[in-house]
Nucleic acid binder design. Structure first.
Length: 573
RNA sequence: GAUUCCGUAGCUCAGCUGGUAGAGCAUAACACUUUUAAUGUUGGGGUCCUGGGUUCGAAUCCCAGCGGGAUCACCA
């Protein structure tokens, strides 16, 4: 990337100045009242032509086809594109044809925002178009947009496809690839339909701290920060579970929160350092009730987006209408490996892992070993929504002990397409049991498990005051959106996925060069020659720079005075 | 973190065993009053990601770095 402006950027800046010289403000302050939209016109004009005799639209110019004193262009607004037709003598009824000949044909470019007033008609080739009677400049675009062409069959030519540029410059991506907007519209629908469902059940949306003194509720490495006034460390939350349970202690029957969680871990196509989850806690319920709730909720969400409870994901058609298959953790391992691990001790599990070719290490306890077997042998088989229930107690320090099965907890995870989508418990509300579980976690931490959960004394104090029996659920929104929109990478469902910083070249200001004696009009020339800082210039050979200046002056046809050689030499002192 | 591929004009991409950097679109000029991937003619536009090395000569070969993609590992 060149530091200096490209030819096209320079031309657009010149056009901007010429608009101003003509008395046209390229960035007007006034509101522009739009009365019609591209999608509505293309869908409804032919049925109701009379309602489109006076329309006002606004948007970006995306293509232009100029033919003398008549032109076609495509205007893109938030709903889509529509062709507009401009005729010189219609937008310039008087002698002065500047608006058409100069403003439209010369000074406007692809990407500029314009407003138009006119009427809708059908061209000879049958395309619904707007015949422009008045044209307004709303905002001048100084950087050329990538031009993506589509032929009659909808094939895309010269697409803007580089993922790096698409993610870094999402504004460009969604402008020239508007199809991707639908993913984000659907993302919004996932959240709003879920919120509607929860609200209709009478549960309350709440907000809990993102800056937490103790990072609890999950096992993950946090982002650490510092509060200056309090002079104390704080962590960006890795989960909000323990705060939401405090609110159940406080006497709310149902609370939920949509929000960002932050985990200082690896990034890949299913992990972003910040991600969105929803957690919900409902008093006097258990995990069996929660399974039914999840089925209803996800069916509601899927219908809100697709109209039916079925969604196509890759090669699989996934049906979110309940009830879902339920398999206990042990039964699922039995089903897919033929091995019954339910009675095994740690040594037996370690041996089984070895037989199955699963690597283990000393820090792994019983629960972790079972999870390894499950992850390696079962997970990928769970395509249709499936509940895996009744996890070993060692893996789950915040869930209540199973009502009838020793060594297990009342927990389920929902798997879809081989991926975990939701996680739920009958929440542990026995404060003494909870304290022991935290202590077990500390032991695991002592064995080297750096993800073991930290003790949270205030949370324990809350439980000691008494929490009603409660069921809780967490859903990863990003992965659910991926599922609902048939995307295989998390970046595609995040507007602004985390990226490494762009390399930024150091650029000296104009003044820096002027201060060493360079005439201001020559600074852009030096930049063009590759000298972006004074240091770079001083490192060069003065004689060569002097000669090259002359060469550049000729090449760029610059009508500015050549500095004498003695002056140039002083730049290097 | 490992492996691998990629980085050339505003965008999409060519560029052979190393020898003066190319195309399409975009852009500029001219023509054109119903085009639609508009058309025709003519022109301009490049830090070949960065830095080293080999060589008479590097976009090309070698090394290192930066950025990105894919696969794997890690991951409640």
């Amino acid at each position: 990337m060149s530091i200096a402006l490209s030819e096209q950027e320079i031309l657009r800046r010149e056009s901007l100045q010429q608009l101003r010289n003509l008395g046209i403000n390229p960035y007007p302050a006034e509101a522009f009242d739009v009365t019609a939209w591209a999608k509505d016109i293309t869908e409804n004009f032919e049925a109701n032509p009379d309602t489109y005799k006076h329309v006002t639209l606004a948007g970006r110019i995306m293509t232009r086809r100029i033919m003398g004193s008549a032109s076609f262009a495509e205007l893109q607004d938030s709903t889509g594109r529509i062709q507009i037709y401009l005729k010189r003598d219609d937008i310039c009824p008087d002698e002065d044809k500047t608006l058409y000949n100069t403003v439209f044909k010369k000074l406007l470019d692809i990407g500029d925002y314009i407003g138009i007033k006119g009427y809708v008609f059908l061209t000879q080739t049958g395309e619904i178009s707007v015949h422009v009677q008045q044209l307004f400049v709303l905002s001048k675009s100084l950087k050329p947009l990538p031009v993506v062409k589509r032929d009659e069959d909808g094939n895309i030519h010269d697409g803007f496809t580089d993922p790096e540029q698409r993610y870094r410059q999402r504004y460009v991506d969604l402008t020239v690839n508007p199809d991707f907007k639908q993913i984000f519209i659907n993302r919004s629908k996932v959240i709003s339909s879920m919120r509607d469902y929860f609200n209709s059940e009478g549960w309350m949306e709440v907000e809990t701290p993102i800056l937490q003194p103790v990072h609890g509720g999950a096992a993950a490495r946090p982002f650490a920060t510092h509060h200056n006034t309090l002079d104390m460390p704080l962590f960006l939350r890795i989960a909000n579970e323990l705060y939401l349970k405090r609110l159940i202690v406080a006497g709310f029957d149902g609370v939920y929160e949509f929000g960002k969680m932050f985990r200082n871990e690896g990034m890949d196509r299913t992990h972003n350092p910040e991600f969105t989850s929803v957690e919900i806690y409902v008093a006097y319920k258990d995990y069996i009730w929660m399974m039914e709730m999840v089925e209803k909720c996800l069916e509601h969400v899927t219908r809100a987006i697709h109209g039916i409870p079925v969604v196509q994901y890759g090669a699989n058609e996934i049906n979110f209408a309940g009830p879902y298959v339920k398999l206990s953790m042990y039964d699922s391992i039995l089903k897919y490996t033929g091995i019954d691990v339910s009675e095994m001790d740690e040594a037996g599990l370690r041996e089984t892992c070895a037989d199955l070719g699963i690597e283990t290490n000393e820090s792994m306890g019983k629960g972790k070993l079972i999870d390894e077997i499950f992850g390696a042998k079962v997970e990928a088989n769970l395509i249709q929504p499936t509940y895996i229930t009744d996890y070993p107690i060692e893996m789950t320090p915040l869930a209540k002990k199973h009502r009838s099965k020793e060594g297990l907890v009342e927990r389920f995870e929902l798997f879809v397409n081989g991926k975990e989508i939701a996680n739920a418990y009958s929440e542990l509300n026995d404060p003494i049991d909870q304290r022991e579980r935290f202590e077990d976690q500390l032991l695991l931490a002592g064995r080297g498990d750096d993800e073991a959960m930290a003790m949270d004394d205030d949370f324990l104090r809350a439980l000691e005051y008494g929490m009603p029996p409660t069921s809780g659920l967490g859903i990863g929104i990003d992965r659910l959106v991926m599922m609902m929109t048939n995307q295989s990478t998390i970046q595609e469902v995040l507007f602004f996925p985390q990226m490494r910083p762009e390399k930024k070249s150091k650029i000296a200001t104009l003044d820096d060069f002027v201060n060493i004696g360079v005439p201001p009009e020559w600074v852009p020339v030096l930049n063009k020659m590759g000298f972006n800082t004074v240091e770079e210039l001083k490192a060069a050979n003065p004689n060569k720079v002097f000669n090259d200046l002359g060469g550049m002056r000729k090449k760029m046809k610059l009508n500015i005075d050549m500095p004498v050689k003695e002056v140039v030499m002083t730049w290097f002192e």
